[in-house]
Design a protein around this nucleic acid. Structure first.
Ligand SMILES: [Mn+2]
Ligand SMILES: [Mn+2]
Ligand SMILES: [Zn+2]
Ligand SMILES: [Zn+2]
Lengths: 172, 172
DNA sequence: TTGAGATTGAGACTGATTCTCAATTTCGAT
DNA sequence: ATCGAAATTGAGAATCAGTCTCAATCTCAA
């Protein structure tokens, strides 16, 4: 079962991290293997392809985009398997599901990433990430005032990015 | 066309606002009439029933809940009309659409209401509203730092309400 | 009263996602 | 290497909220 898109082996001597970009993908592969073992699941070629494809991307990928890229590598992999695999990655803490403006679930890598929130351009759909500990602290304070214990939150700021502000075309 | 759930007439003498709870509904009716005139739409019995039903409720009502209540008054009103009417109310600024945990659109009255955000209990689905101008200010600051002009935002805090914290049943 | 144009309800349709199920694959135990 | 229980797969059916289509009906300004 050769991994088609991954270069044979690193030329580096240090074995720990083959190359900067590949590190997350291979680390994810390891973490997934552990999760699969722990849960009594099974390793499959399809999951390998999907995970490799997902972690070779950056950003917030819709399932449909991911499916297209996956099928470019192996046309026989079905949509259901991509959905199922992304759910596993989410359960394993390796990916997070996001729901922005449209009805599609988007996934982003979650390995070694902080919590963050998003700025979204309603015209070009650019997504910018940010962290703001003061907002987070105020959220906690508000929740406490109302007797809530908050486990997660969603903060999305929608508007126009710098580039789109100058264009007068109707924002989509 | 008697309004079944609304008490006959206020006992008060002041004619301006029949009763505190009815004020929003009748004000909404007026605003909707203005919107309908302005847009060249037409007044219909169905819209009256839907608008009366919607404004006699409080909170965040799913379309399905609203449809049930509407059909309790007039079984012939169809789902499509409820969807269409809530869209009109939203365009007219009388209702706002919300999307929380599940896939359903919920509507809340928007007449004479401030912007606000929500705390949502993941177990009992209670929804508590809050306003926090410091959070809003920080959001603006963050957006500015990234060159965005923000037109709207979504802030939802998910967790357990006070009552649900003490129960050990698995949170749904 | 009339008629152009808006509205309606039923049901078909959509799009994202989940489910079903027979065929295939995995992997620990022989 | 072989076996077989259990997991996984892909295709297509099913689901679900919401939208669209269209013939029949209603509204309202003239
Ligand atoms: Mn992100
Ligand atoms: Mn609200
Ligand atoms: Zn933009
Ligand atoms: Zn609760």
């Amino acid at each position: 079962m050769p991994r088609s898109t991954v270069p044979p082996e690193s030329k580096r001597t240090r074995a720990a991290h083959p190359s900067p970009e590949l590190a997350p993908a291979s680390a994810a592969r390891e973490r997934l293997a552990a999760w699969i073992a722990e849960k009594g699941l099974k390793a499959t070629r399809q999951r390998d392809v999907i995970v490799d494809t997902f972690f070779s991307q950056t950003g917030h990928l819709s399932v449909d985009d991911l499916l297209n890229k996956v099928q470019a590598r192996d046309a026989n992999i079905g949509a259901a398997t991509v959905y199922r695999t992304m759910k596993i990655l989410t359960d394993a803490g390796l990916a997070s599901a996001r729901h922005f403006f449209d009805g599609q679930t988007r996934y982003e890598a979650a390995l070694d990433r902080h919590h963050h929130d998003h700025l979204i351009c309603t015209r070009c759909h650019a997504i910018v990430e940010f962290e703001n500990e003061r907002i987070e602290a105020l959220q906690d304070a508000v929740a406490r005032q109302h007797g809530f214990v908050v486990t997660r939150h969603k903060l999305e700021l929608y508007g126009l990015c710098r580039a789109c502000q100058t264009l007068q075309n109707p924002p989509r």
